[in-house]
Design a binder for these strands. Structure first.
Length: 582
RNA sequence: CGGGGCGUAGCACAGCCUGGUAGUGCGCUCGGUUUGGGACCGAGAGGUCGGAGGUUCGAAUCCUCUCGCCCCGACCA
């Protein structure tokens, strides 16, 4: 491409709306323009990068036996009603009606559609396994689109689905995808990790999340340097030292605590208790199978609740903290004086079925202090099992940096920020059962197909690549996904000799199979250098005064080092560099 | 959905409080000088001040409504 005619609208100043680095650089380097919140147009440079990413996705999917499809983005509601997700999914789905007033939606993922093909066409175990994938647009009405291409409402996803006869087959398919994902992210030049994560409303047993470490990310990952344990905070556990309790009291004892509202307050209150001897009581309203269920979550006073863990433990699609009025109606006291003792009975009087869920760290604890469900009063000497009898026990606690690794003896956990770039799920038979996708086994039995689903966000890869590869001057693309391999910069286009040298070199590079860009603009050299740095092309060949001596300057974007190379050798040199690993 | 902020030229912003000719820098066009890290001089083009309604002799400016965008929180497959 000739830069003089190519559309690369670079910006000198940072756009006011951009906050994170990748967003600023995507705009400044002329890759994207915004159309609406979470909706962006991809300009030619971005499209080139996206196509390179997609090519890697295709190659690695094909390598593990994937077959590429292209499914509709517009879906009739019926198919989503069959799986139950038309109701299960809330406002995140873009819904619309057609002219006949029929419910439709824009696809946010394609389990239902792929499953509908599978159930109609797959009949026999002999046809399995199948590995199907597509690269296609997805629509999600995110509550808060943000950070450029990080959280979008319309984005490109590579989604793959596997269909197996049994669990063993799924294990193999899952492992294949996992390996493919490792190769994909490695080839894209990303620093990534595989972590345990919540499956959310996807359902299924096991899921692995692929994350790229970056401060711009929204996920928190706990890792152990000693044994390699890694988990999203929504799933991570840790070992915390147990607290030795005294014998406690034969029954809880109420005492007045005027003005005490928080765990902290009670630690300093005369006759109070240290935080690890208190029970934190949080009232939530969970949405379970479209029903509102009040829940009292109990944790150790010095521990933090993780809401995703709570939702997962309850099988809820959504949890929110109860409003102050709801809390008072339910338990007869305000937040700050709440507790599990007698809570179920108190709620019953108000005609509510209160569900009590307690964190595992409260197991076997006695002599605890907690609210009395009476303003300005607490109870001491509470024995959790004896006095509260939770309906269930679950891991509800957020782990923190410095806590002991749950897997190994020596390690401690470190928590860092990351962004999700891919997620793979063992779905099992959730969709095949609800939608009737079955095959006949060798002995003639009809069994539901065992499925897996695997997603990668194309824009997330691009965003992560920039977040992890940039400097003060701009983007530093990994060679594998750079929009061009090399840019030929003619310092003065009005100089006949320089121009002709540049033109020839440009054509030779192309002939050698390289993606080359010729900067033939009538601009000062400085402007061209700045733009080339900003856009982040891995190599720049500067055609300047040294041409008289038969030399061009080879500049490496990443290291900002340059070297003079003989004109006759430069093409093979660049070819070697461009094809070399990252 | 709760809290905060912002919509004025392609971009970044000033002007608004205290109503009276719509400005600055970058970019763009033309001419000239320059030419290896975002040049300089000169001359230009470019704006229904997000939209609607109201107050007023007069509204970018004051009032009401509305649309949009950004950030924090909540949420998130």
């Amino acid at each position: 491409m000739r830069w003089s005619q190519y559309f690369i609208p670079t910006l000198r100043q940072d756009p006011a709306d951009a906050e994170v680095v990748s967003h600023k650089l995507l705009l400044r380097a002329g890759l994207i323009r915004q159309l609406g919140a979470g909706i962006y147009s991809y300009l030619p440079i971005a499209q080139r990068v996206a196509l390179k990413v997609m090519q890697i996705l295709r190659e690695e999917m094909n390598r593990v036996g994937g077959q590429e499809f292209y499914l509709p983005a517009l879906h009739p509601a019926e198919i989503w009603k069959e799986s139950g997700r038309w109701e299960a999914i809330g406002a995140d789905m873009f819904r619309l009606r057609d002219r006949k007033d029929a419910d439709m939606c824009l696809g946010m993922t394609h389990e239902e559609i792929f499953t509908s093909i599978a159930r109609n066409e797959l009949r026999s175990y002999k046809q399995l396994p199948q590995v199907w994938y597509q690269i296609q647009v997805k629509f999600r009405d995110e509550p808060r689109p943000k950070s450029g291409l990080m959280r979008l409402r319309t984005f490109i996803m590579k989604d793959a689905y596997t269909f197996d006869l049994d669990a063993a087959g799924l294990d193999k398919s899952f492992a294949d995808q996992r390996e493919a994902y490792k190769r994909i992210f490695t080839r894209c030049g990303l620093n990534f990790a595989i972590v345990e994560a919540s499956s959310g409303s996807m359902g299924g047993s096991t899921s692995n999340e692929f994350v790229a470490k970056t401060d711009a990310g929204e996920d928190l990952i706990a890792t152990c340097a000693n044994c390699g344990y890694a988990a999203n905070l929504e799933k991570a556990t840790s070992r915390v030292p147990t607290v030795a309790d005294d014998n406690g009291l034969s029954s809880p004892e109420e005492f007045p605590t005027p003005g005490v509202r928080t765990i902290e307050d009670l630690t300093t209150f005369p006759g109070g208790a240290t935080a690890d001897r208190q029970v934190k009581s949080l009232v939530y309203v969970a949405t379970i199978k479209n029903e509102q269920q009040p829940v009292l979550a109990l944790l150790r006073g010095d521990h933090q609740l993780h809401e995703t863990k709570l939702a997962d433990s309850l099988g809820a699609t959504f949890v929110r903290t109860a409003h102050p009025e709801e809390i008072r109606e339910l338990l007869g006291a305000g937040a700050g004086s709440l507790g599990g003792v007698g809570a179920r009975v108190r709620a019953k009087e108000a005609n509510f079925q209160l569900y009590l869920i307690a964190d595992l760290a409260l197991r076997d604890r006695r002599g605890m202090t907690t609210g009395a469900n009476k303003d300005d009063h607490h109870l001491r000497g509470v024995d959790i099992e004896r006095d509260i009898q939770p309906d269930t026990w679950a891991d509800l606690r957020s782990v923190a940096s410095g806590e002991n690794c749950p897997r190994c003896d020596q390690g401690t956990l470190e928590v860092y920020k990351a962004m999700e770039i891919g997620h793979i799920f063992k779905l099992g038979t959730k969709y095949s059962e609800s939608m009737g996708a079955t095959v006949l086994t060798q002995d003639g039995k009809e069994v539901p197909i065992v499925m897996g689903s695997y997603g990668i966000g194309v824009e997330r890869i691009i965003t992560a690549a920039i977040e992890q590869n940039h400097d003060a001057d701009g983007i530093i693309w990994p060679k594998t996904i750079a929009p061009f391999d090399v840019v030929v910069t003619v310092t003065n286009i009005k100089d006949e000799q320089l121009r002709e040298t540049g033109e020839k070199l440009y054509k030779d590079l192309q002939r050698a199979g390289l993606d080359a860009l010729l900067d033939d603009r009538d601009e000062r050299a400085g402007v061209k250098f700045k733009d080339a740095d900003l856009i982040g092309i891995p190599y720049r060949l500067t055609i300047g005064k040294k041409v008289a001596d038969g030399l061009v300057e080879l500049f490496e974007r990443r290291t900002k080092t340059s070297e003079d190379v003989k004109l006759g050798e430069i093409v093979s040199r660049v070819q070697k560099l461009a094809l070399a690993g990252l």
